[in-house]
Design a protein around this nucleic acid. Structure first.
Lengths: 227, 227
DNA sequence: AATGAGTGTAAAGATTATGTAAACTTTCTC
DNA sequence: GAGAAAGTTTACATAATCTTTACACTCATT
């Protein structure tokens, strides 16, 4: 029912990376791996995963600090912290680092999978239907209606609208959109594709597309969805 | 207008029982509670609730086992499992115990209510026949009629149709179909088998297969059955 | 007023997903 | 084991969607 979730695993032990990748893919996730904070950062520059699994001890950075950085830059991405048995500090167990969950090495794969599932589920409301000013977005049915009338959206348009709807009131940069929706897919930096899809979307959901009510342009920065 | 739904809550923590009862009644449900499997059993002997909320750890029985028993005796009663944070096993998250949903303690009341709602809405009694717009699907007899005329479906076609019927209005991805109907059986990721069966199904149940009325294509995502 | 950066917009071209028939393979039935 | 039924793959057509391109417009800045 759901789309394949993309997970980023950051750990410096190549064996763990290998095992995790194999298992995650077995359970229907897409796995991206990095063996250092530097590499992870490069990946995060390009795409936003649905969940991050982060080892507490990396060669080039402190896990807690990294976790905080991730949380700052990619607001809502859930993080599961991997820790060695003897380094469980209060900070980690109390989840004060901002991590959403933690798991102690050595761990059972099933246990990790279970936590991943729970974590991903927690971040998404069950009743995924949202109504703003006559615009109803039903994630489950993949359907959008405006004042009761059905609005036909293409996949990209729907993704865009969902992204805006789940970040209401916040300004979304084109860069963020690119990371979220296109991810690692090729899209030249000078491409106007995002703008074009946005126009199409406006034409479909705005009463008067040249004076948009839902998706507002924030000059020089990006767009935002009305509060 | 629906009748008041009756829920059975089974948990050995009196505080949780109290809170749940209060909240459920606040949201218009009738709550029956039991603090042990023995008492729950006595209640179940007497009445069949519309939904059961079951704690994973009870003094007199294993939650998973109990869940299985419930499912055997009162087939179609949906069960929501309550689990402690550190006892989420893969069995529960994978819902392999037969539970229809699960929620991790401590939980938000709203979250639980939402899941109850979703669960009740989703549960279509399998032993009953379902009729939508002239299309009658008799799950038990494995028979489908369209405006009274018998429709001959192959096993795969029937499975497909059932899957759609029991998830009305929701988008079903090909991936989900593959998991549900083919399971671990081999089916290459690039296979068009699902599409082909779907076309056959459409040719049999749709008035005009090129403008389907029942099974609607959701571009880029999958298909959905009409509401 | 000219410049240039950022954005709006239409239309053309490129690409991809889906529809569909038909060939081929497997499984079932007798 | 032959024939029939069901399932799967293949191949291609077509429709849907995405991306690029080109140009217009706005609005600071010089």
């Amino acid at each position: 029912m759901d789309k394949k979730k993309k997970l980023l695993v950051i750990d410096d032990d190549p064996d763990i990376l290998k095992v995790l990748r194999a298992n995650l893919e077995l359970y229907g996730y897409t796995a991206v791996t990095a063996d250092s904070w530097t590499k992870a950062r490069a990946i995060l520059d390009d795409q936003v995963p649905d969940l991050i699994i982060l080892d507490l001890t990396l060669p080039d950075g402190d896990g807690l600090e990294i976790c905080r950085l991730i949380k700052e830059e990619n607001h809502r991405v859930p993080v599961i912290m991997l820790t060695a048995r003897d380094s469980i500090s209060d900070k980690v167990t109390g989840l004060e680092s901002g991590a959403d969950d933690y798991i102690v090495k050595p761990f059972e794969t099933l246990e990790l999978i279970a936590r991943i599932k729970a974590c991903l589920r927690r971040s998404v409301p069950v009743d995924k239907a949202l109504t703003i000013n006559g615009l109803e977005i039903d994630m489950k049915a993949h359907q959008v209606t405006l004042n009761g009338k059905n609005v036909e959206l293409t996949p990209k348009e729907f993704e865009l609208l969902s992204l805006f709807a789940s970040n209401r009131g916040e300004v979304i940069t084109r860069e963020f959109i690119r990371k979220k929706i296109w991810g690692d897919a090729k899209l030249y930096s000078w491409s106007r594709a995002i703008d074009v899809h946005l126009q199409h979307l406006r034409q479909k959901i705005e009463e008067n597309p040249s004076e948009p009510e839902f998706i507002i342009t924030v000059a020089g920065v990006g767009y935002k969805f009305r509060e």
